[in-house]
Design a protein around this nucleic acid. Structure first.
Lengths: 232, 232
DNA sequence: CGGCTTGTCGTCGATCTGACGATAAGCCTA
DNA sequence: TAGGCTTATCGTCAGATCGACGACAAGCCG
């Protein structure tokens, strides 16, 4: 149907890319997946993984494809974070970038993609200036993750398939940067309908008394929300 | 700096547009600003206002510009809703559209823009199939507005500069489609720090006992949130 | 076996919530 | 002008929830 010709002034040419903010919790720190750029511009600088949207795929599909290409993992929660379209954000040409947020459990160290010199998990607290406007995008992604932990079950996305209440609590503590009362957290989290699903098994991988193992439940919105209160 | 030439397969050409979900509360109904398309495709069908992003402006600026062009009002709250990029969402060519959400007080009937046959406020409950994927976008916008009313002060954006507690309550009732207890709502809303700012004046435009007039306060996030509970 | 670690259950007072009674303060009509 | 209607605002009360924290359970390690 691409048959009608329009004036170029009505349809200025844009390139559309996707950028991925992939977060995980490892070694008691909130980490982002970053790649070191192998090409100009910003060669050698850290950047968010991402790439161009192809003409035949949807923007969402492009994000999922890039995520698999960069992390080797599929099936992660992936949501749109926002679109960044300042005229000069890419020095080469007019590029509009759609950013996505993904939360991952502690994955093995990622493999560098085709056009990246290196890929690794970097604690967000240690991230300095990234290529393009990626520092802004990363900041928005972290803030979105913090906010959504409060009223959705997204925290479980940071955990492996089976996890203990304490592991989930550490996710909240790391992402929010607070310390939470273990007993109140346990009461609250096990009291939310549909958030956790007991497996019947338990583990003592954290030392101390064995803890019950849970799976993610069906609930996605939390009523009432876990409030980001002060801890002990 | 648009000096480097790249392969067209790496930079497929896209058109980028903005679409606006402009909501208001009038006559006890949640209404959206719609335009009747004056040109193909979808000529004669209702659609969201919007237009093409120019090369020299940012995407956010394009949204603000279109909002002024379509409503004649500036200074409204405007936030990104999401980006819609299915390959065939526009039959003419590959178009990626960035949708924005704006909340407006009860404005005068809008004037039709240059390329629209008509513009008017339509109750969202009566909206049938819109052009392109605009029905989906409108639905997402309404859902976003509903959700944000719960934990932000966004409800006041639907009200004029000075408003009564009852007017704000009616916004919540209309947007959520529930009925709220006037006394509890009053207690809660006046108890939230920074949400309302007393003007000292009062009005009896709603009949009955005169009500105090308030201005929007500085608070934007509500702690604790107004929960979307059941009413009477 | 006794100490250490971590997990889980319970208690308690402060706070918040929703349901609803009571009163205030305007307008309208007779 | 009084009584009735409307809407606004304040108060009360029982139940739910919250954070602080005590108590105990159940593993490991020496």
């Amino acid at each position: 149907m691409l048959c009608v010709v329009y004036s170029p002034s009505d349809f200025p040419p844009f390139a559309v890319t996707v950028d991925l903010v992939v977060l995980t919790v490892r070694a008691d720190a909130l980490c982002a997946l970053l790649v070191r750029r192998g090409e100009a511009p910003f060669r050698g600088r850290w950047a968010l993984p991402g790439g161009f949207v192809q003409v035949t795929e949807s923007v969402d599909a492009a994000a999922a494809r890039e995520l698999v290409e960069e992390t080797g993992v599929s099936g992660l929660h992936l949501e749109q974070l926002g679109t960044y379209g300042e005229p000069r954000r890419d020095p080469r040409m007019r590029v509009v970038s759609v950013a996505y947020l993904a939360l991952a459990p502690d994955l093995p160290v990622p493999v560098a993609g085709t056009d990246a010199a290196a890929a690794s998990w970097v604690p967000v607290a240690e991230v300095s200036s990234l290529a393009f406007d990626h520092s802004v995008i990363l900041g928005d992604g972290v803030e979105r993750a913090r906010a959504k932990l409060e009223y959705t079950s997204l925290g479980t996305e940071f955990c492996p398939a089976e996890f203990t209440v304490a592991e989930l609590r550490r996710v909240y503590e790391v992402v929010w940067g607070v310390s939470l009362d273990a007993r109140n957290f346990h009461r609250k989290v096990t009291g939310v309908e549909g958030l956790l699903e007991a497996t019947g098994r338990s583990t003592s991988r954290d030392g101390g008394r064995p803890a019950a193992l849970y799976r993610r439940g069906a609930a996605s919105v939390l009523h009432p929300p876990l409030v980001r209160g002060v801890g002990a």
